[in-house]
Amino acid sequence: MKLADVVRELELEVLAGPDLEREVTGGYVSDLLSVVMARAKAGQLWITLQGHQNIVAVAVLLELAGVIVAGGIEPDQETREKAEEEGINLFTTSLPVFEVAGRLYRLGARGIDHA
C-alpha cells in the first residue's frame, strides 16, 4: 500500500509529504527512539507520541516510509522544518496510537515479516 492510501484512509494531517507515493512495507510503534533505532526496518511507517526533532533523524537513518505523531501531540516547530529539509514524510492525527496501529493493520500493514 502507498502512503497516500494510508493518509486518505486514516485521515492523517500531512505536515511534510514529499513522497506520498512511497510504498509502506509495515508498521512500527515505540516512543523510545533508542529502541526504534535498533529495531525498526526500512519502509516501515512509525507511530509515536514523540514530537522532538530527533524523530526525523531516526527516520532518515532507517529510511522509514514516514512518521505519524499520534494522540493529538503537536510536533515541535523544528521537527516540521527538519522533515521538510530532510524529505521525510511527517503526519499527525488526533487518534490514539492504538487506534492508528489497529487501522493500519486492518489496511494490511504488518509489524513482522511472516505475520
Binding site: L32, L33, S34, V35, V36, Q50, V58
Partner: peptide, 9 residues
C-alpha cells in the same frame, strides 16, 4: 535523553 531520543540533539 539517550533512551528516549536516541542521541543528544
Amino acid at each position: 535523553i539517550l533512551a528516549n531520543l536516541g542521541f543528544i540533539p
